[in-house]
Write a protein that binds this DNA or RNA. Structure first.
Length: 1079
RNA sequence: GCCCGGGUGGUGGAAUUGGUAGACACGCAGGACUUAAAAUCCUGUGGAUAGUAAUAUCUGUACGGGUUCAACUCCCGUCCCGGGUACCA
């Protein structure tokens, strides 16, 4: 007797779990003629708490997709594994003395058991586990490939370091500048490269490597004893534990993800992620387009102190004039001179024109009030070729040279003779000069202050400059009289922790350096300040202050009573900055009358012409810190000799994590591995790294390993990689938006560039399942007593709110007896009831042990079975939406499954189906259901497919009950319907499938095809609306012409009633949709 | 503050993207079966007004406007909730 009862469900589900395992039905082959489909879940961190009902939500969805695709004829890869390295296991080890390896494998076993209960179709033979040496051998190996790569900006892809070395040997680094502008050796030639010793070479190469070791500002968390990545720090405290985090300089590994910023950004257009997910990544990458602008500095005292006269002269002599007339006349002079070059000048010009030396030269070009013979603006190099030299001329030239040099140019002179006789020597000298760093590349040092701005159009609204307090220039430019002021401020800044800063973000502080910068367009001198609100790490660490257009600049100007230049007329009200780009510019010299957003390009062009600035793209994203001072992670596969890290050989991998039971950090910023001195100093003059990689490392590529998990000669076989390719659907939480998803995209791009894989995005489509939140319950204890007052009456007492276990509350009503037994403290609790009941308070919170609102899926399975759990979780609402867990509707889903079951059984519970042909109505329900389910799965709308199943079962069972007693459901529709249901409720489907007489598992069946002919109707029940309001229904043939419908409708009683005999204004007939009569 | 989502009965949520708002389910109410309860089945169920009733009319998708024959859906403004981000120049 097979009723769909609790006992029967248990029997069925257990039976099939065993059968499926024994028959290895989930085993996936890499060798198949079928098209592939890869469905992936974000693999879990196996925590000690086990699964709660929130975890399986995404797994159920992906399981449905996987089973559906398999029935649709795909070879489906649907694996599961564990992100098993990481902090919690290590913290647990410190607190409880249990080795992370032990607790991790216990937790994994527990997870596997819980997952098996839900009936997922994972191929467990492909399980990966990031802490397994056989796995992390390849994590280390990939890390070494990254270490052995650099980013060729010209080709926009990663290449091998060996290639870089051969480039250096041929041409130095002129075409491939050092990514880090702070590094002491910026430019070198081939000969110089060859002359460097190995240590020196390694140091230079380190500046290029995509995985590199450097002293960087890191987020140091003392309480956790480790460095954290930017995304692990929230509001100045650690993501885990909420401990304070400070900036600290440490030598650690980083990944040069910034080189990939643009590709990571562009790649988002090729992949199907949700808008919000793409937005989060875009914000994180933080691209902004603008310009770098160089400002000259006045060296000494302020213009007032120098006297106005000298100030004017200064401006006239040293800076580029923007006076239109001067420019014009200068340019005309220059043009004339170009027409009549000397022989030497012409010969020289032929050698340098068209960027023959790698840089663009101009001839007879105006600089300030002088015209120079030749200039390379990019490199700020002036070349003068002199004729016969008279003494008077010589003196004049010297003066002229001085002035041009002060404008930031280097001047070299050659005689006519030198050019004519020894051109090669001359060119060689110029090549030397060109290869030395230009002022722009050198950064804000010496006489130039470089800022980054997205709004170069506001250049005439600049009223001051602000440097980050840590900016290199601060030391150099602070005037004697302002020194104490600046020192005081620097001290204040240093005293502020990250948390302080975060807490008072909008506080205005700052100090004046005593120095002034010169606006290159109008010669105006503006004071240079330092302030916390300018960050040293972004842009150039310096900004131009435009108070009329920028809120922070405005507050700063108001606070320090600096003048405010209005360049946007009535758009600025004197009280608040207006960041508009649509205003017409005023007080802006040659930009006057121009719309701001158009002026941006005009200014940039001018900046580039004058060689004092250029278009610049900036990214907020920083390189990713990759060292953790932890034990439970992948050791870095390098050995240090004389402090230089060298990659270990492939055959030496994996570098296994040494056994240890000491997980406390060794102090001094060193992780627990530093305690193992024998392991660290494993050979004379050779050392290992005491850090381990972050958990992101193992997670960055795990989906590749599933393709070929037991390979020990490669991270995965090329054939397997080419067959499975990208993940077709990836389902997981949105909390991994920045870290995991960005790092995996990076690793895949690098592996792609190096030729290991054909695709350069890991995940074709990403779905973020919503969080299932907990629905907490509270009791209210009267303060100082053991009496508990019901929620409605708590206003009468002083109470404390306590979380109570949701499992002893029915709806809102507390089971008071269970409560007394729950904790010894409450054994003799008394209750103040309302209407004889104790009503609890409630709140939606995250599901957490400490809130006692955790619902374990095992419990639901125990009561209703896995099929009900699966369908109910889907029925709860749209997959991507967050929702609180409650079991309010679970009976409805359970009833559906029983009704479905009953379609195959008679009233006494005997299995019986009939071979009679189904009726047209039955066929219609059947085909409609297939069509809808297919459509819904394709759109990941599982809640509506559950509804559709319910409708189907309701309709079929009412049709069945209308049959003469004893007649059974029709095999020809019920059998394929079982297949349609199988992805959602695999256990019941498999059982019915077997009862229908099949030997093979339903997994190998094929999904039925719906037939449109059973769905097309010959007629349609038209809603007849009058003035847009539906008043009646009328049935017409679908092919009935509009005119005929209109006639019948207008003649109908209902319409006549409303029209009162008057002719309607308009009649709209939409075939197959609606009729609307307008009066 | 800025940038994304979202706001539909007592509840979870449907609505083929401009064409009958509230599918499906929970809950609730009434009924059948039962000594009784549970379970099961049937009926009703957005709100208001009128009617014994079938029914009719009005109203209704956060709020205020607009476009349209027709708006939950499109446009403008306001309020609220959720997520991301925060001196990023």
């Amino acid at each position: 007797m097979a009723e769909y009862s609790k006992e029967e469900i248990k029997r069925i589900e257990e039976k099939w779990r065993i059968e499926w395992k024994n028959r290895e039905v989930y085993k996936v082959s890499n060798d198949s003629k079928k098209p592939k489909f890869y469905v992936l879940d974000m693999f879990p961190y196996p925590s000690g708490a086990g699964l709660h009902v929130g975890h399986p939500l995404g797994y159920i969805a992906s399981d449905i997709v996987a089973r559906y695709k398999r029935l649709k004829g795909f070879n489906v890869l649907h694996p599961m594994g564990f992100d098993a390295f990481g902090l919690p296991a290590e913290q647990y080890a410190i607190e409880h003395g249990i080795h992370p390896a032990t607790s991790t494998s216990q937790n994994i076993e527990n997870f596997k058991k819980q997952l098996a209960n839900i009936g997922f179709c994972y191929d467990w033979s492909r399980k990966v586990q990031t802490c397994d040496p056989k796995y992390y051998k390849w994590t280390q190996w990939i890390f070494l490939q990254i270490f052995d790569s650099w980013y060729n900006r010209k080709k926009e892809k990663a290449e091998r370091v060996a290639e870089l070395v051969s480039i250096f040997e041929k041409e130095g680094n002129a075409n491939h500048p050092v990514p880090n502008s702070k590094f002491e050796i910026q430019n070198f030639k081939a000969v110089e490269w060859k002359s460097f010793d190995d240590k020196n070479k390694q140091e230079i190469l380190m500046q290029y490597r995509l995985a590199y070791l450097a002293h960087t500002d890191v987020n140091w968390c003392e309480a956790l004893g480790t460095v954290l990545a930017n995304d692990e720090v929230i509001n100045g405290v650690s993501y885990r534990g909420g401990f304070p985090v400070v900036k600290k300089q440490m030598r650690q590994w980083s990944l040069r993800i910034t080189e990939y910023a643009e590709r990571l950004l562009q790649g988002l257009d090729k992949i199907d992620f949700s808008d919000s997910m793409k937005e989060i990544q875009r914000n994180w990458i933080g691209k902004s387009v603008g310009a770098r602008i160089d400002f000259d500095l006045t060296p000494g005292p302020s213009p007032e102190e120098r006297g106005s006269a000298s100030g004017e002269i200064y401006a006239q002599d040293f800076i580029f004039t923007t006076d239109e007339r001067t420019w014009k006349s200068q340019k005309e002079n220059a043009r004339d001179n170009r027409k009549s070059p000397t022989e030497a000048e012409e010969k020289f010009w032929q050698s340098v024109r068209n960027s023959n030396l790698g840089f663009k030269f101009r001839r007879q070009h105006a600089i300030g009030r002088f015209i120079v013979d030749f200039v390379c603006i990019e490199k700020k190099l002036v070349v003068e070729i002199d004729g016969a030299i008279h003494d008077s001329q010589k003196k004049e030239d010297e003066e002229r040279t001085l002035i041009i040099q002060d404008a930031g140019f280097k001047v070299i002179r050659f005689s006519n003779e030198e050019v004519l006789k020894n051109l090669e020597v001359v060119l060689q000298e110029i090549r030397m000069e060109l290869s030395s760093p230009s002022p722009l590349e050198r950064g804000p040092e010496g006489e130039v202050l470089t800022v980054f701005t997205t709004r170069p159009d506001t250049i005439f609204g600049v009223d001051f400059m602000v440097l980050a307090p840590e900016h290199d220039l601060v030391k150099k430019i602070t005037s004697a009289s302002q020194q104490t002021e600046i020192d005081k401020y620097l001290k204040y800044v240093e005293s502020r922790s990250e948390v302080d800063r975060m807490a008072e973000v909008k506080k205005i502080t700052g100090a004046f350096t005593g120095a002034f910068a010169v606006n290159p367009f109008n010669g105006r001198e503006v004071p240079i300040w330092i302030s916390e609100y300018v960050l040293v790490g972004y842009g150039t660490g310096a900004i131009m202050g435009v108070p009329s257009g920028d809120e922070r600049d405005h507050k700063f100007a108001k606070h320090f009573k600096l003048p405010i230049t209005n360049i946007i007329g009535s758009h600025y009200n004197g009280e608040e900055a207006n960041p508009t780009k649509d205003a017409i510019l005023e007080n802006s010299d040659f930009l006057n009358g121009m719309v701001m957003h158009k002026a941006i390009d005009v200014v940039i062009q001018k900046l580039e012409e004058k060689g004092i600035g250029k278009r610049q793209v900036n990214y907020k994203m920083r390189d990713a810190g990759w060292s953790r001072q932890r034990y439970w992670g992948e050791p870095f596969p390098v050995t240090y000799r004389e402090d230089v890290p060298y990659a270990m050989k492939d055959e030496e991998l994996p570098l296994e994590l040494p056994p240890s039971d000491n997980f406390k950090s060794a102090g001094n910023g060193e992780g627990p591995l530093a305690n193992l001195t024998d392991w660290i100093n494993f050979a004379p003059n050779q050392k290992r790294d005491s850090n381990t990689m972050p958990t992101h490392a193992g997670a960055a590529w795990y989906f590749l390993r599933y393709m070929d998990p037991h390979n020990d000669t490669a991270f995965a076989d090329k054939k397997a990689l080419d067959y499975w390719q990208q993940v077709d659907v990836y389902i997981g939480g949105s909390e991994h938006a920045v870290a995991h998803l960005l790092y995996s995209r990076l690793w895949i791009k690098i592996l792609h560039d190096l030729g290991y894989i054909k695709f350069d995005e890991p995940f074709k489509k990403l779905i973020n399942q919503g969080k299932i939140t907990g629905d907490s319950r509270f009791v209210y204890r009267v303060r100082g007593t053991n009496r508990f007052v019901s929620a409605g009456l708590k206003g009468n007492h002083q109470t404390d709110e306590l979380h109570v276990d949701v499992n002893i509350v029915n709806g809102l009503e507390l089971d008071t007896e269970a409560f007394k037994k729950w904790k010894p403290d409450f054994a003799n609790a008394e209750f103040i009831l309302e209407d004889g009941k104790y009503i609890c308070g409630s709140a939606i919170e995250k599901m957490s042990k400490s809130y006692f609102n955790v619902v374990n899926p095992d419990e639901i399975i125990n009561n209703y079975g896995a099929d009900t759990l699966r369908m109910y979780e889907m029925f709860l609402g749209p997959l991507e939406q967050s929702k609180p867990w409650n079991t309010n509707g679970i009976d409805g889903v359970f009833k559906f499954l029983r009704r479905f079951w009953n379609l195959f059984h008679d009233s006494t519970g005997n299995f019986t189906v009939s071979d009679v042909e189904p009726s047209r109505d039955e066929l219609k329900v059947f085909h409609k259901t297939i069509k809808k389910i297919e459509h819904d799965i394709d759109n990941y709308s599982f809640n509506t497919s559950v509804s559709e199943f319910m409708i189907c079962a309701n309709e079929l069972s009412s049709m069945k009950s209308n049959l003469p007693t004893g007649q059974a459901g029709k095999r020809s529709i019920l059998e394929p319907l079982v297949i349609v249901l199988a992805p959602f409720a695999p256990h019941i489907a498999e059982e019915l499938w077997e009862k229908l007489g099949h030997q093979d598992t339903i997994l190998n069946a094929s999904f039925p095809q719906y037939d449109e002919q059973y769905l097309t109707e010959s007629s349609f029940n038209y809603p007849i609306s009058i003035n847009g309001k539906v008043r009646a229904q009328m049935n017409f043939a679908l092919d009935m012409p509009k005119e005929d419908i209109e006639k019948v409708v207008l003649a109908s009683d209902i319409v006549l009633k409303w029209t009162e005999g008057k002719p309607p204004k308009k009649v709209i007939v939409v075939q197959g949709k609606i009729v609307n009569v307008v009066l």
